[in-house]
């Protein structure tokens, strides 16, 4: 199963440990995580489910390309990293 990991910077605000997800896209992976951790949603995406301006996501070491739809594919063994973008300071 794909594995999703969140930046340790978030741990100061709320708990979001690494976890395995059953998902074919980044959006599906995040939706699954948010289902059990609703407060995390607003830290990663806005109310239109678009990636926040200063958050970046890598899938298998490649930055995702669809920041608005989060449709980037996730494979069965993918590693998804959700990180802070340095553009945010």
């Amino acid at each position: 199963m794909p594995r999703i990991v969140f930046t340790p910077h978030l741990q100061r605000h709320l708990s979001c440990p690494p976890q395995s997800v059953s998902a074919g896209t980044v959006r599906e992976a995040l939706e699954q995580v948010f289902l059990a951790n609703e407060p995390l949603r607003g830290y990663i995406v806005d109310e239109r489910f678009r990636l926040r301006k200063h958050v970046v996501i890598f899938v298998d070491n490649q930055p995702i390309t669809d920041r608005e739809g989060l449709s980037d594919a996730v494979g069965p063994t993918s590693e998804i990293y959700v990180l802070q973008a340095l553009s945010g300071g």
Binding site: H13, Y43, E47
Partner: peptide, 25 residues
């Protein structure tokens, strides 16, 4: 928060603990 957006917190014990609240959407 620079990366993670606007957050609203409330304390009912003079700031000993803070509870995360919803934000306007």
């Amino acid at each position: 928060l620079g990366h993670f957006g606007t957050k609203l917190r409330r304390s009912d014990d003079e700031g000993a603990t803070w509870t995360e609240l919803a934000v306007p959407e």
